[in-house]
Design a binder for these strands. Sequence first.
DNA 1: GTGATTATTTATCATATGATAAATCTTTTC
DNA 2: GAAAAGATTTATCATATGATAAATAATCAC
Lengths: 187, 187
Amino acid sequence: MQKLFSQIETIHPISPAAAKALSLIGKEVSFSKGRNIQEIGHTCKTLYFVKKGVVRIYYFKEAIDITESFEFENAFVARAESLFTGKPSRKAIQAIEDTTLIAIDADKMFGQFDTHPDLERLFRKIIETSYVHTVNRIESLQFNTAEERYKALLKAAPDVLKRIPLKYVASYLGITQVSLSRIRGIK
Amino acid sequence: MQKLFSQIETIHPISPAAAKALSLIGKEVSFSKGRNIQEIGHTCKTLYFVKKGVVRIYYFKEAIDITESFEFENAFVARAESLFTGKPSRKAIQAIEDTTLIAIDADKMFGQFDTHPDLERLFRKIIETSYVHTVNRIESLQFNTAEERYKALLKAAPDVLKRIPLKYVASYLGITQVSLSRIRGIK
DNA sequence: GTGATTATTTATCATATGATAAATCTTTTC
DNA sequence: GAAAAGATTTATCATATGATAAATAATCAC
């Protein structure tokens, strides 16, 4: 879990006691490429940290597979709309490469917040960062053309285009795979 | 500030001491219709609570006015991408009706978190709720047609269409005003 | 209340993206 | 390493939405 704690250090350093408590909650889990880490219909009770690999959150809209987001090494992943509401999620989390994560039981972690306020603060900062990302993403989807979104992604996260199949990138950008291919063709 | 504390009660009740601390930080402010509450280029250091009225967050993309979001009575408003990063915001907050808000100085409030962890928890829950909204909004923008988005808004928040000029609603939905008018025309 | 301003709708034409199908190219499996 | 499965590209046609302009309707200011 060294990698998790190094990452935490960059977000909000926590006391040794809080780190100890967290380390007792986190469990390392691995999933091979293509496997679902959490299934559709399951209520999200876990915060994941990506140690190695890449995952995506996806769902189906009228039988069409839509990728909501990708997360790479050192990122945290959860289906917020389920974790924070207690409702079953219509979304799944899937390993895009062979992936190793630290699974943190959310209820157990929340249970430590009274004892370790620094853990709560860390968690808050993680959520704040995710929130800022979604706000920026809305801006991109709201009024940029598909081509602008593709180029912005290419610039902001070239890794996505190297490690993620284009069919997943397309729906992430809010377009069909054929459109993405066409956009890429224009040089 | 009664209204603020009633709303807090529904999110996460706080101790009288925390409420007292918060009440010393909050200041009631009013803006007449059309006035900017915070300007573009300003770094957001304030969390607002809407006591009466409606506000929107907006920005310009190539001289076109784009509404990012609306907030009505009992909602909290802040420009997250600025408040949580410390960078100047490209967005403004504007009163759409004559509006009264409670302005909460963010740094002062953050400064109370060590003393009042319940205040931090309340704030975290506010952010979590906002985050869930943005995640759902992304889903809507990512693959729903303009017509689907309009109908969903009509169903989820009919108030928006009653109280907000359509030109603002259009950009909020990610379409032009002319398109929105066309969609509304189809019955 | 009247004129001026602003918001909304309607019309026409242009274009980006979708849908479908088929042709390549790549990866997986045995 | 050959066959099968899956991913990507290319092509064609259809359509939703954009851009622009002009007509109407609503609101505001005095």
